[in-house]
Structures are given as structure tokens and as C-alpha cells.
């Protein structure tokens, strides 16, 4: 029974770990960029500009806010040839302009709509693969709770992000079991586990207290 449990746990640890490996790399590599507030090549990406005239605007756009406005703007974005996760929509009432930031990992687009002239000016910038890692690490994140996950691929990514956490927890627990079975490694493993706990508590206490 124990041998069977060990074999199953070991196989699950291996295969789930292999499936998860690229996701762990995405989250790990992007940590360096986030911790040091620097992403190689993110500022110098290629830019593209274009304008779309006679944009069909949804009715009562002025009265909409939050998620309802984002959903209503999807059609406008489609006319402008833009797809992605919509961020905070700026509305300059006096100038009758909407500013819509749209993000896809590795690409940032800003759509400025002149409501009176029904004209959309679009600026798209390629921010590169490293910036894509950062964007994915931070998504969906704690901000713009009412409108986030408004693009299906980012909604799916949020499931993968959660799945990465749950699978990492499984991998760590199954890893503990696989280690505990190895008698020869128990003592040094316990020492390292204890050292890790002391380091964690020490640093966390120093930062918080």
C-alpha cells in the first residue's frame, strides 16, 4: 500500500511538476523585473499609429460606467482593430474624449475616442516578451476589481494563475512526503526546514515589526 502511494505520489509530482514548469518560470523570472523595477526593452518597443473615422458608438455611452461601459466599448474596439484587456477608462467630459488603455501581454494600446467627431486614434506599442512576463505575473491583481478579467484570454489566465498556486502547494506537500520517506535525508532535511523557517520568521519579523 505504502509503495503504491509512494509511486503514485512520485509520478504525480513529476508530471504535474513538468506541466507547471513553464508557468513557474514565468512567475520566477518576472520576479527579478518586478523587484528591481526594470524590464529589458519595455520602453523602446515598436510603435504603430492609426486612425478610424465614423466609429459607431453605443447608445447612452455617457451614462455607462464600470464593467457596463467596458462591455459597451468592446464593439468600438473591434471597429478600431484592437483586442485586449481594457484598463481604467478615462472620460474627459468637457473635451468629449474617452481614453481607453488596452493590454495584451507584450503589447500596450491606447485608444483615444473623440465622441463628437466619432473618430478613434490608436497607438499600439510592442513591449516585448519580458514585459509580457511582468504583465502576466501581475494579472489579474488587486486593482480595478469591477472591470478586470474583461477579456476572455485574461480570464482564462487568471484560472491558470490560481491553478499554478494550487499545484505548487500540491507539489510542495508531495515533495515533503517524498523527502520524508527517505530516511537518510531526514536529518539534514529537518535542519534545512528549520533553518528556512527561522530565516523566514526572522526576515518577516524584521520587516513588519
Amino acid at each position: 500500500m505504502n509503495n503504491r502511494l509512494y509511486a503514485i505520489t512520485r509520478d504525480l509530482h513529476l508530471y504535474l511538476g513538468l506541466f507547471l514548469a513553464p508557468f513557474v518560470l514565468v512567475f520566477s523570472v518576472s520576479v527579478f523585473f518586478l523587484v528591481h523595477a526594470w524590464t529589458p526593452g519595455a520602453k523602446g518597443g515598436a510603435e504603430r499609429h492609426w486612425t478610424v473615422e465614423n466609429v459607431q458608438l453605443p447608445a447612452a455611452l455617457d451614462t455607462l460606467a464600470g464593467r457596463a461601459r467596458v462591455d459597451a466599448l468592446r464593439g468600438v474596439l473591434a471597429q478600431a482593430g484592437v483586442t485586449g484587456e481594457v484598463g481604467f477608462v478615462g472620460h474627459n467630459v468637457k473635451a468629449q474624449r474617452l481614453t481607453i488603455p488596452v493590454m495584451a501581454p507584450g503589447r500596450e494600446t491606447v485608444v483615444k475616442i473623440d465622441l463628437a467627431a466619432r473618430r478613434a486614434e490608436i497607438t499600439e506599442r510592442q513591449t516585448g516578451v519580458w514585459d509580457a512576463l511582468v504583465a502576466l505575473h501581475k494579472a489579474p491583481g488587486p486593482h480595478l476589481v469591477e472591470i478586470r478579467r474583461n477579456w476572455l484570454p485574461m480570464r482564462v489566465w487568471s484560472w491558470f494563475a490560481d491553478g499554478t498556486v494550487y499545484l505548487l502547494l500540491f507539489l510542495s506537500l508531495s515533495g515533503i512526503y517524498l523527502w520524508a520517506v527517505l530516511r537518510a535525508e531526514r536529518r539534514i532535511g529537518l535542519v534545512l526546514l528549520g533553518a528556512g523557517l527561522m530565516t523566514f520568521l526572522g526576515v518577516a519579523y524584521a520587516v513588519i515589526s
Partner: peptide, 13 residues
């Protein structure tokens, strides 16, 4: 894993 993750990192763009 690589295909699904790669879709988000590179493919979406």
C-alpha cells in the same frame, strides 16, 4: 504546459 503557457506569453500578442 509549454504550449498553454507559451500561448499567453507570446501567442496572445
Amino acid at each position: 504546459g509549454a504550449a498553454s503557457c507559451g500561448w499567453f506569453v507570446v501567442g496572445l500578442r
